[in-house]
Structure formats: C-alpha cells, structure tokens
Amino acid sequence: ASPLSAKPSAYRVDEKVTSKQDATTYNNFYEFGTGKADPAQNSAAFKPLPWTITVGGLVNKPQTIDMETILKDFPMEERIYRMRCVEAWSMVIPWIGFPLSALLDRVEPLGSAKYVAFETVVRPKEMPGQSGFFQPLDWPYVEGLRLDEARHPLTLLATGLYGETLPNQNGAPIRLVTPWKYGFKGIKSIVKITLTEKEPPSTWNRLAPQEYGFYANVNPAVDHPRWSQATERRIGEASGLFGGARMNTLPFNGYADQVAGLYAGMDLRKFY
C-alpha cells in the first residue's frame, strides 16, 4: 500500500475508528483462505497493478478503464463508515474512494438497466483460495445491487483506507462499500461491472439462499437462521479477553435515515 490523498467528506460516523492493524489483519476474503488471518498472510503474491475494470451491459458508453485513469478522473474523498459483518462483528473504517454513481454517470446506463452486477478477479496462481481440492465458493465471486442502491450517495467504490491505497487483503485495488449492508456485499478486487435488466446472482445467496439474501441489509430484527443479528461485537473494544461487551445492532447499520426510503413498502423479512 502506498500513500493516497483524499479530501475529507461529511460522511463520517462519530465513533472510535478501528485500529489499522485490526482492519488489515482480520478479514474475510475467501480467495486467500477462509481463516480471518489468511488474507493478510496469503496475499503477498497478488499483483493489484496494472488493473482495468470493464464496465458494460445496458449502457450507452461501455468502456474498459484502468486504475490510473480512475484515480485521475474521480476525486477521492475519505469517508468513515461502520462496517457490520454478517458474522455479528463490526468495525469503523476510514475508506478512501468515490461514489459509484460517478462511474455510472460516465457510462450512461440505458433506461432498461435495473441492476448492477459486479465480479471479482480470478487468478488461482496469485489467490491460493481459488486453487486446490477444497474450494469453499464458486469463482468468480459475484455481487449485485439494484440500480437505485448503486446510485445512492453512500455507495462507494473504495481505492484505499487509512490514508493509503488498499492492501491486497482488503480488496486491492478497488472494491465496493455499502455501509448499510452486511460486509459480504462489499465485493473486492473488482474487474467487471455490468448493468442488467434482471437481478444478478450473488455468491453467498447462491451458496445458501435461506441464509443470505440478495439485499443483505443489516437488520437486527431478522436473524440469520443459525445465529442472532440483534447484537454485534466491535472489534478492538476488548482489552485482551475482557471488556468487549456486545452492542446492539442498528437497523440498516445506523444509516436508516438515509437508505430506509429505498425499501419503502417492501417486506424486509422476505427480502432479507
């Protein structure tokens, strides 16, 4: 990771930021292994540069953009967001990035576009989780958003954190951040973005549809079938083993006033 400058933005939660050490060594990125420490340990061989993203599908101006152009053309801002994992732990992370809507504006979605599909890179030689006998997921990792969710001002394409470019284990060189949704929606190391008419597949939903929905909005009232989502443990709050009390999980991870309107009239128990 190298230094990355960004202007501060108004999007910042007033909570203690998780230590960089914790945010960069406690990760879910199954392409590098299923253990929390695996991504930091197994991602040294991954080459995030050079990199291009292909944006296409139902758009007027399909294009392939390289990272240099992205960093030059889109003004980077720092945003401090809560991050809530579906496994009931959470962090507060200072991301650097730009709104996904800015990228969408550039490719001009057609009127028929209703969804945005994302795809992670597949490089078994650099990503040990993608090779071998036992592979936990089908590759590539895919995710999706409804177009209005993708255009929401909170939705960020992140290129850095803690004042630096993204480390490999956090999804270098570019990833999605949707702070009102569970962390697995934040697809990492994106190579392809496609505008579609139909709801695109998402990796965890495909693996266990009863457990992980397409929407995956943080919701303390709808439990994961196997564990409660009512509370969470904030990483780094405990000193050693003690003092890390669980805190209540907030609807839409505390962003309800900004995003609840996207789901007006929807039964969130059904569309979890």
């Binding site: 929390k36 443990r233 990483i235 780094g236 050693g240 083993l241």
Partner: peptide
C-alpha cells in the same frame, strides 16, 4: 490460549478465538 488472550495474542477478536 488464556495467556495469549490476556496479552493480546489471539488476534482482533480474542473472545471468539478463545
């Protein structure tokens, strides 16, 4: 493991790891 937990050797989520 208890000793590691007390002295911060169980990673970012020591309770879960312990």
């Amino acid at each position: 493991a208890f000793y590691l937990g007390i002295y911060g050797g169980l990673g970012a989520d020591p309770v879960r790891e312990f």
